[in-house]
Design a protein around this nucleic acid. Structure first.
Length: 558
RNA sequence: GGGCCCGUAGCCUAGUCUGGAUAUGGCGGCGGCCUUCUAAGCCGCAGGUCCGGGGUUCGAAUCCCCGCGGGCCCGCCA
């Protein structure tokens, strides 16, 4: 059964009715949207299933089922190829759907509960590049979608703020840092001295030893070094915040691995006592046997220091303790799938009873191969957003609609949509021409449709929604698309995949552009004019909401 | 060697969970549509061994098995 949605509509009610009826008749089939209008609005492939049970031909079984359908919003029912095709009363259904969809809260729900979402999770002192885009944007979008559906979503940015590179950074800072540059462009400067460290260390290997020593002192809590480390952390957060603001990504908590070093050490000992972990007799490290498929892995190094896995487990337990969530979601690259299997396995052993979900995503490669900061083969996020914004601005100038604010919305919208629209598991080859494309299946295409809709609504003057006695195919297509919004959102949170919403938003925009070209609104006679205005208004409401949930802003003009 | 993911027109891609009607769109190509709400748009045409082979089924892009190609991971990095 469906969870109750706060904003249902007549179309989905009929669908639920048919689903229920089919189930009661013993044909548990998914309801389809027929490929053509002439095949109806909803289709049930019940014939074959029932034929087997009743031992009669499929066509006959479908006919029998069709005879049992009785609903005031259903106009007629046809049987073909073992399908039962259902035609709805366009006028009545449209009136109800549009009324529901013009409400600001259309599609929202009161699911309740709480989820914790881990995304972006960048490393301190490193610049953000296109490889960070997927986690950041998928996570940020999921956070908004859960909240819209009435589930409290806690977004956590879990910083990589630990590791031997901080020893190197401290050494490099003391020798070569330029304070002015550090204030102006903190990450660029930190990257510069980090690269310099590696160059110098080639000539002078004692620097490596110095860095190890610095890191040891940092871990021991040396006051000066801890202060420096904190500064690097703060500078990184400040730098990243600018990008998050541009992207429209929000967090509820900035955390970091450094918080869990002590807890992870204790946890490893606990696991040892519980018999979940064992001590490697040869090296003294604490290891866990995850079984045949996952093999063994270390959770505490032989020198007693912690590892990723034990720290993540400590963080997981801490999140449960502090937020008591129903589900914990990790939006992290698929190269870490094994890590999360192990993490969830350990959580399970410790009796954790929550939904644990890893949302994996593929790599973003460059046409010339994998990204490599060392080889200078990187595309920085700032550069992508800047180029996209510049190009959008140039397009606007051609049209005489230029303004800075909208150019930024269009540029960023193109980038966010390009990332969000593809299934996360797929690898992406980053190509400028693709991400900077503004035509076809792109962010600006969606934005353009909202601008067109709003222009009509702005010129309409006073009007009140009217129903139509004859609903044409274009109008009806829009109504049916608009009606599906709530179930699309449900699918997104069921799968934890925002690309489902992105595809829907595109389909909706495509429907509108087509509707717009073939159906004059303002110049139509009443009641068609007001009926079409309700379609435009409902469409605008739904698409604008979809875009908001996909981190895409609606431009004023374009 | 083992594990996980991906494979759908020249390129990109939805659908695979939950099997069902002539497989979804975009880019690129070709041809049309701006005196009518912004042409970042619309309409049409061409383009397919759904990686291959078996199997299950009335029915397979979808489920199962065996391969092939690509990616990622495989104890003291994260």
């Amino acid at each position: 059964m469906h969870e109750p949605l706060a904003y249902m509509n007549a179309f989905l009610e009929v669908k639920a009715y048919l689903e229920d009826l089919a189930k009661r008749e013993g044909a548990d089939v998914p309801i389809q949207y027929p490929p053509e209008d002439k095949l109806g609005d909803l289709a049930l492939p019940v014939g074959f299933k029932l034929a087997k049970q009743l031992r009669i031909p499929p066509e006959e079984a479908a006919k029998r089922f069709a005879g049992k359908i009785n609903h005031p919003l259903i106009d007629k029912v046809e049987v073909a190829n073992g399908y039962v095709n259902v035609f709805l009363k366009r006028g009545d259904v449209s009136a109800d759907v549009l009324k529901a969809a013009m409400d600001k809260n259309y599609g929202s729900a009161e699911r309740g509960g709480r989820v914790v979402i881990d995304y972006s999770s960048i490393n301190v002192a490193k610049p953000m590049h296109i490889g960070h885009l997927r986690s950041t944007v998928i996570g940020g979008s999921l956070r908004r979608i859960y909240r819209f559906l009435g589930t409290e979503a806690i977004g956590i940015n879990y910083l990589g703020d630990i590791g031997t590179q901080f020893g190197k950074l401290i050494v490099a800072y003391k020798r070569w840092a330029d304070e002015d540059a550090l204030e102006r462009e903190p990450i660029r400067e930190l990257l510069r001295i980090y690269v310099k460290f590696h160059e110098e260390a080639e000539k002078n290997p004692s620097l490596e030893e110095e860095a190890r020593e610095a890191y040891r002192r940092l871990e021991e809590g040396d006051e000066e070094y801890v202060r420096l480390w904190k500064r690097f952390r703060e500078l990184t957060i400040r730098y990243a915040q600018k990008i998050y603001d541009l992207l429209g990504v929000e967090f509820d908590e900035i955390s970091g691995e450094s918080f869990y070093v002590e807890k992870a050490r204790e946890l490893a000992e606990t696991l040892l006592k519980m018999g979940i972990a064992e001590r490697d007799p040869e090296t003294g490290a604490i290891i866990v046997d995850f079984g045949e498929k996952m093999g063994k892995d270390i959770i505490l190094k032989s020198d007693g220091t912690t590892l990723y896995l034990s720290r993540d487990l400590a963080a997981l337990l801490d999140r449960i303790e502090r937020y008591n969530p129903d589900k914990l979601i990790y939006v992290v690259g698929s190269e870490q799938s094994d890590h999360f299997r192990k993490l969830f396995w350990l959580a399970d052993m410790l009796g954790v009873k929550r939904g644990l979900v890893h949302v994996p995503f593929g790599l973003i490669n460059l046409p010339e191969g994998k990204m490599s900061t060392r080889k200078g083969r990187v595309v920085f996020l700032e550069d992508v957003l800047k180029k996209a914004t510049d190009l959008a601005g140039r397009e606007m100038q051609k049209r005489g609609t230029y303004n800075e604010e909208d150019a930024r919305k269009i540029g960023v919208g193109a980038v966010n949509y390009a990332i969000l629209k593809v299934e996360p598991e797929k690898n992406i080859t980053f190509e400028w021409s693709r991400i900077l494309s503004f035509e076809g299946d792109t962010g600006p295409y969606l934005q353009y449709s909202t601008v067109r809709a709003r222009k009509i609504l702005g010129k309409a003057g006073d009007w009140t929604p009217k129903s139509a006695e004859n609903v044409n195919d274009d109008e009806w297509k829009m109504v049916k698309l608009i009606a599906r919004f709530p179930e699309v959102l449900e699918e997104v949170v069921q799968k934890d995949r925002p690309h489902v919403l992105a595809r829907y938003a595109y389909e909706l925009a495509r429907g509108f552009h087509s509707f717009y070209d073939h159906n004059p609104v303002l110049k139509s006679e009443e009641p068609t004019r007001s009926f079409r205005l309700s379609i435009v208004s409902a469409f605008h409401n739904v698409l604008a909401r979809s875009l908001e949930l996909l981190l895409i802003q609606e431009p004023e003009r374009m």
